[in-house]
Simulated assay, not measured.
Amino acid sequence: MSRSPDRVRTQTEPAQAGAQAVVRALSLLSLVGRGGNEGLGLSQLAEDAGLTRPTVRRLLLALGAARMVEQDRRTRRYHLGPEAYLLCSFAQDRHGILTHARDAMLRLAQETGDTVFLTVPQDDHSLCLDRIEGDFPIRTHALKRGDRKPAGVGAGGMAILAALPVPEADALLRRVAHLTGNLGPLLAQDLHRARDLGHALNPGRIVPGSWGIGVAILWPDGRPAGALSIAAIEDRMRRDRQPMLVAALEREAREVAARLAALDPRPLSETKRNTA
């Protein structure tokens, strides 16, 4: 006997509501994590999540009960909890690119004196996992740890985009066009240049006077795991200095890629097949 439409709707609506609650909770958890050491207050979390304060409070209570978040009793701000830390530690060897890239970042910062970034792809965006500042007294502050930018924005994000297959990268750039606005045509030009050169150059696209150079870190199948980039004031990105910066970035990107390759024992053919 077939079910009536009303009965089907009654059974599926709770499942949809439950899935929505999970998505909201996970998004909120991600926002809390990006609050860093300072944490985030309830009002800021509600604004960033686009949810009401009562909804956010209810989700935070559930996450707190699972020890995924905790609230500082003094500041009333929210931070990642001990269970989140534990889960991250389990995934560190497999997915902890920061663990495998930090020594490279330190070497680059010491060698160049400039600010070094590690960026990873995240859906239609790129995420800055970390930044290390060199000793040059004038620094750029265009990108902070935890910042999330549309694909192709910034030297690291552009290096990741350029390492993707051409049809995939072009489609991705079109998908984020509503986020990049007038910057879109310039990013398309930068993408073509990055493919030709093998590295990305950001000539002050986001913050005037703040330039960047980025090189992709590749998995064994050739897909980008992330990117190392260097940012500095325009005068320190002159043409005669760029080759030295690119060479240093490429050297360290290869080192990180070799460490990542050791994490996956599968044959290259199988890796390609599973990521196709």
Rank of each mutant, 00 (worst) to 15 (best):
Q71C: 12
V176W: 02
G222N: 11
S2A: 15
L60P: 03
D93T: 10
V32Q: 02
L268K: 01
T52H: 10
T52F: 04
G113W: 00
G146L: 00
D264V: 09
L45W: 07
A159I: 03
A109W: 05
A247W: 02
L127V: 09
H192T: 15
P165V: 12
V256G: 01
W211S: 02
G156Q: 01
R175S: 11
R9P: 07
A276T: 08
L197F: 13
P185W: 06
C128P: 00
R102H: 12
E168G: 03
T271M: 15
G204V: 04
A49E: 02
Q110R: 14
Q44D: 14
D103L: 13
R73K: 10
L191M: 08
G152L: 01
L161W: 01
A46S: 15
A62E: 11
T119S: 10
L186E: 13
P243K: 04
L42P: 07
N37K: 13
A247I: 04
G198E: 03
W219C: 12
L80W: 06
I138L: 12
T55I: 10
A247L: 07
L28P: 01
V176Y: 00
M244H: 13
C128Q: 06
P5I: 06
E111Q: 12
V116F: 00
R175G: 03
S269R: 14
G39D: 06
G35T: 08
S43A: 15
H95Q: 09
P265S: 10
T99I: 04
L45Y: 05
V256A: 03
A216M: 07
R193S: 14
E83Q: 10
T271Y: 09
A84E: 05
G81T: 06
L28I: 05
G41Q: 07
L45I: 10
A101F: 01
R236M: 02
A162M: 07
T75C: 11
